[in-house]
Write a protein that binds this DNA or RNA. Structure first.
Length: 428
RNA sequence: GUGGCCUUAGCUCAAUCGGCAGAGCAUCGGAUUGUGGAUCCGAUGGUUGCGGGUUCGAGUCCCGCAGGCCACCCCA
């Protein structure tokens, strides 16, 4: 037994699993290019206050899930690993004066996030998100662009039955009155509330709306709905977002109880979920509008909207749907030799081919030829080059491992023959 | 953070009532001095997750801890 293992809630993504991840990263990057979202990268840790202010002090993410970095001295700044991406990006937007760029600033990136949570399948302490943000456009069309982009990712990843839950949670003009009304409603039924919900009523009454307690179902169904209490501006905005999404053909389901767990959201809130999925980790991603966040982090009042998609859950869902991951890359050529001890020749041949742009491997151990060929076949190489006595006449054997045929090739023609064989294989 | 189930070789799993820790796969080698993914033979691989207790004797029973999973909480 090894005495060390990966920390709780973290995983090693081994070579066999990496192609599936790289495929998703490639899809994200290609979508970003086509939709015009530039790449950005921010530190994986920030001043704790960035998250406390940005995400919200009363949220679970900050209250109990923040990975804090132990300060090295009394004067040390307080740091924390990022639990999500938006706060750091908005911090960068303010710090570097990105409001001087043409608005909105469209950015995206893919990277690890950290939450000190109890791990479960599909829920890790280090997990990966694809984060997309558009800062500086009040909407509503940009809202639809963002939602459609997120949905499109699942389409191109090949994951079926991904739907969009959509809601508006109002803004500073209409939400406070709604929260007051909702609190009064639940308080008037206090005796029917389960213990947990009773305590939440004081801290975050909106959360009662997505309680899973069956006792709550009837109460929630009869509760006042934010969508019926929106101010005129929010109402107009929400209707327009829906109209734009309809025009794009995005499958949307209105979900009046969708509230989301971060304080910074205003108006548009959405979640991507898998219809008919087993288990609790059905939320594949989510996002919303955050019109107050830039100001909260020290910038001028600036609207924004974005989403984060959980790649771990997409990988998991693709495996459940038995959608095949791409195979690891096979080498075009595998260099073998009759003399097991002559690693110099094998390595030199492979290196020359590599310098010529060819994907080449060589057996650098001391196996005899039959073992080297076995290795070549198992690694899926198209060709094997066999170095032997023919070298004295300037020839090597070029063996096509798939056709099980071989012929001598002059050294000068080797690279050209391999490239030609690879091309005809690709196109044939 | 709460409750439940689980943990034996790199992986999947055996081990009777508490009585010598095993198999398949994988890895490496041999059968085969310059020709392949098969086959046969062999080898490597274990403080039975960790620590304590009961016992002549613990993989097996008891306690604690860690890790994984499930349901909560919450979220991606």
């Amino acid at each position: 037994m090894p005495s060390f293992r990966a920390p709780r809630g973290t995983r090693d993504l081994l070579p066999a699993e990496r192609p599936a991840w790289e495929r998703l990263a490639a899809i994200a990057s290609d979508l970003a290019r086509r939709y015009g979202y530039a790449s950005i990268e921010t530190p994986i840790f920030e001043q704790t206050a960035v998250f406390e202010r940005g995400v919200g002090e009363a949220t679970d993410i900050v209250e109990k899930e923040l990975f804090r970095i132990q300060p090295r001295s009394e004067e040390a700044e307080s740091w924390a690993l990022r639990p999500e991406g938006t706060a750091g990006i908005v911090r960068a937007y303010v710090q570097h004066g990105l409001h001087t760029l043409p608005q909105p600033v469209r950015v995206q990136y893919l990277g690890p996030m950290f939450r000190y949570d109890r791990p479960q399948a599909g829920r890790y302490r280090q997990f990966w998100q694809w984060d997309v943000e558009a800062i500086g456009d009040p909407g509503p069309a940009i809202d639809a662009e963002i939602v459609e982009l997120g949905h499109r990712f699942y389409v191109e990843a090949g994951l079926p039955n991904v739907k969009v839950l959509l809601n508006s949670i109002g803004d500073g003009a209409c939400r406070p009155a709604y929260v007051t009304e909702l609190t009064a409603y639940f308080a008037s039924h206090r005796e029917r509330l389960p213990e947990l919900e009773r305590s939440r009523l004081a801290t975050n009454p909106l959360r009662l709306l997505d309680s899973k307690d069956p006792e709550m179902a009837a109460l929630i169904a009869a509760a006042p709905r934010i969508v019926d209490r929106l101010c005129d501006a929010c109402r107009t905005h929400f209707d327009a977002v829906r109209a734009h999404l309809d025009a794009l053909g995005v499958p949307v389901r209105l979900e009046p109880s969708l509230v989301r767990g971060l304080d910074y959201y205003t108006r548009t809130a959405f979640e991507f979920y898998r219809e008919g999925a087993e288990g609790q980790q059905q939320a594949l991603g989510g996002g919303g509008r955050y019109d107050g966040l830039v100001q909260l982090l020290g910038g001028k009042p600036t609207p924004g909207i974005g989403f984060a998609l959980g790649l771990d859950r997409v990988v998991l869902a693709l495996a459940e749907e038995r959608i095949a991951a791409p195979a690891p890359a096979h080498p075009a050529v595998f260099v073998t030799g009759a003399d097991p001890a002559d690693t110099v020749s094998r390595l030199r041949f492979a290196t020359d081919l590599r310098h010529g742009g060819i994907c080449a491997r060589a057996d650098l151990g001391q196996r005899r030829l039959s073992r080297q060929l076995e290795q070549a076949a198992r690694e899926g190489a198209h060709f094997a080059v066999i170095l032997g006595d023919e070298l004295r006449e300037g020839l090597v054997q070029l063996r096509d491992l798939r056709a099980a045929s071989q012929h001598p090739v002059p050294l000068a023609d080797l690279a050209r023959e391999i490239e030609r064989g690879e091309q005809s294989h690709r196109h044939g």
